[in-house]
């Protein structure tokens, strides 16, 4: 593929991923949130294919394919099922309003740019511009985990953080050795499954998946 075209495609994917993170901050329904996560993962998979094509690293195709299977299809599907069983379809409770969350997300993007600036100079991959974006996605995912109150949305925040991380891995090193990548992937899958199990247990025990009830253990 032409370097310019692949460069443009990479930029497109990365910007789309960041915008989807922002979109996820504004959603008020779990189904929407999971869709945003699935589409974000779709762009991540596409990005892996583009980078694989333009750098000739065939193991990235494998990575993209696993992303498609696990993060675009598997996890969102399983979590939607869980959400239905928990009757958690409606509102996503946040401790902060939407405008406030968006403002803070914007601030986090600026922070990400400041932090990654010294790093950009030291890396010479075609994807190095993605570094700031990936840091933004990580920070926004973390912010989502901190402000949301439902077990399920906290989990989506964690998964989005991990999307940002994979973006980061790709942007500074075109991906780690394949064994490691696959291992990390199944680990993420396990995290999602186990978090799902405990979300179910919490909802049975407390009759809610609102994690603000989990504030009893203290000194």
């Amino acid at each position: 593929m032409d370097v310019v075209i692949s460069g443009n495609l990479i930029d497109l994917c990365v910007v789309a991923m960041l915008l989807l993170s922002m979109l996820a901050m504004t959603t008020t329904r779990i189904a929407q949130l999971l869709n945003a996560f699935a589409v974000q993962s779709l762009f991540l998979a596409f990005l892996a294919f583009v980078v694989a094509d333009s750098t000739g690293r065939s193991e990235l195709y494998v990575l993209g394919a696993i992303t498609l299977a696990v993060k675009v299809a598997g996890i969102p599907w399983a979590m939607k099922n869980t959400a239905v069983r928990l009757h958690a379809g409606r509102e996503v409770d946040s401790t902060m309003g939407i405008p406030g969350s968006l403002l803070i997300s914007a601030a986090l993007i600026i922070v990400a740019y400041l932090v990654t600036e010294p790093l950009m100079a030291t890396v010479d991959t075609i994807t190095r511009n993605c570094l700031a974006m990936s840091m933004s996605v990580i920070l926004i995912g973390l912010f989502m985990m901190v402000t949301r109150r439902k077990a399920m949305t906290e989990a989506v925040g964690l998964l989005m953080m991990e999307n940002g991380l994979f973006l980061g891995i790709m942007s500074i090193s075109y991906g780690m050795p394949l064994v490691v990548e696959i291992g990390i992937f199944f680990d993420v899958l396990m995290v999602a499954v186990i978090i799902g199990i405990f979300a179910l247990r919490i909802s049975r025990a407390f009759d809610t998946i609102d994690t603000s009830v989990l504030r009893r253990l203290k000194e």
Binding site: L158, M161, R201, A205, L214, L217
Partner: peptide, 21 residues
């Protein structure tokens, strides 16, 4: 499987998963 144990597990999973990320 007590409520308090579930709370501890949830915190453990969440905080350590973020940390490890």
């Amino acid at each position: 499987r007590r409520n308090s144990a579930l709370e501890a597990t949830w915190k453990y999973l969440m905080i350590c998963s973020v940390g490890i990320t």
